Amino acid sequence: MFKRLMMVALLVIAPLSAATAADQTNPYKLMDEAAQKTFDRLKNEQPQIRANPDYLRTIVDQELLPYVQVKYAGALVLGQYYKSATPAQREAYFAAFREYLKQAYGQALAMYHGQTYQIAPEQPLGDKTIVPIRVTIIDPNGRPPVRLDFQWRKNSQTGNWQAYDMIAEGVSMITTKQNEWGTLLRTKGIDGLTAQLKSISQQKITLEEKK
Rank of each mutant, 00 (worst) to 15 (best):
L30I: 02
Y82T: 01
K128R: 14
S17N: 13
T38S: 09
L5T: 01
L16V: 13
T158M: 07
D40R: 12
Q162I: 02
Q46I: 06
A95K: 08
Q178R: 04
N160M: 14
G189L: 02
S199D: 10
L64A: 01
T136H: 14
D127I: 04
L193A: 15
S17C: 12
F94R: 11
Q89I: 04
A108R: 00
T86K: 12
E45Q: 07
K37T: 13
G79V: 01
F94V: 07
Q202F: 05
I167C: 08
I137C: 15
P87N: 14
A18L: 13
F39V: 01
M1P: 00
F94S: 08
L207R: 12
Y100V: 15
I130G: 01
T183K: 14
E99Y: 04
Q69A: 04
K188G: 10
G182P: 15
V8A: 11
D139C: 15
G192W: 03
Y81G: 15
R143I: 05
F94T: 09
Y100G: 07
P124I: 14
E99Q: 09
A35D: 04
Y105D: 04
Q151V: 04
L30F: 05
K210H: 13
R41M: 07
D61N: 08
I167W: 07
V171E: 00
R186N: 02
L10M: 06
E209N: 12
R50Q: 10
K3I: 04
E99K: 04
P124H: 09
Q89G: 06
I174E: 10
I205S: 09
M166P: 01
Q202T: 12
A95E: 11
P145D: 07
P66F: 03
M1D: 00
D165G: 04
G170I: 00
K71T: 06
G126E: 11
I205P: 15
I167D: 01
K204C: 11
G74R: 00
L78I: 03
I205H: 05
P121H: 11
A104H: 00
K177H: 15
V131D: 04
Y28Q: 07
I49T: 14
Y81W: 10
T194F: 03
G106T: 08
Y55D: 07
W161Y: 15
A9G: 06
Q157P: 01
Q203D: 12
E45G: 05
N160F: 11
Q157H: 08
E169M: 06
K102G: 14
L30T: 07
P140A: 14
Q203F: 13
A73F: 04
L184G: 10
L148C: 15
A14I: 11
T187A: 12
P140V: 13
I119N: 09
M111Y: 04
F39R: 01
F39W: 03
Y72V: 01
D191Y: 07
P145M: 07
G114I: 09
G189V: 01
T175R: 05
A35T: 10
Q46W: 03
V68I: 11
L78Y: 01
L125M: 14
V60E: 00
A108C: 07
K102T: 15
D61M: 04
A110F: 14
P66M: 05
E45H: 05
R153K: 02
A195W: 10
T136Y: 14
A51Y: 13
